[in-house]
Design a protein around this nucleic acid. Sequence first.
DNA 1: CGCCGGATCCCCT
DNA 2: GGGGATCCGGCGC
Length: 209
Amino acid sequence: MNYQDYFSSMPTANLAKDLLGRPFSYFDGQERLGGYIVEAEAYLGKQDRAAHSYAGRRSQANEGLYGPPGTIYIYSQRQYFFFDVATQAKDEPQGILIRAIEPAFGLERMIQNRGKDGVLLTNGPAKLMLALGVNSRAWDCQPLDQSPFAIDLDPRKRKAAKQLIAAPRIGINQSDPFWASQPLRFFVAGNPYVSDMKKRDYDPNRGWL
DNA sequence: CGCCGGATCCCCT
DNA sequence: GGGGATCCGGCGC
């Protein structure tokens, strides 16, 4: 299935959950870096108080969210960069934030890029971008299939998780209790690379079957 | 090990 | 001029 079809094939929350266990990678010109998606959040567009596109807000900063399904949306906050994929039809500004991956490809290069090892390598949305060595918005608004980024949709490449958990999103403004509490954050239970995963909650097999 | 506060910068109001 | 879909180091337990 191509990205356009996939990223409009089901509601955004279902897509965020469906991405867990799938390989996410970035070709840096020399080698492929990345790993398995273990945490992702859904943002539901104009109605969603926590979304950058809330109430139809639109500018050069968030234009990527309005692109066709499978459009890359990279944004910066403070000195960090974050990676999203736009979902649903063009001009329907929903999207998914990739929050964490379990590193699997190009480990050595990622450790070098990041200057850290262990779970700190990729257990957060900005950390994983640092590990990949992406520090610009150069690929913002580009279609995923015409970029060095890839999400492998082959079901045989997907790692099977023991348990997936839905919880409220991280870092959301609490002024709107409804949207702040919606369970739109999805993660692999017990995987150490999930942001804020407590050591006592680590699964012996990192949450995989 | 886990909580807490400061850093730091682009973009919109 | 203010704030945000964060990160990290320091300190206390």
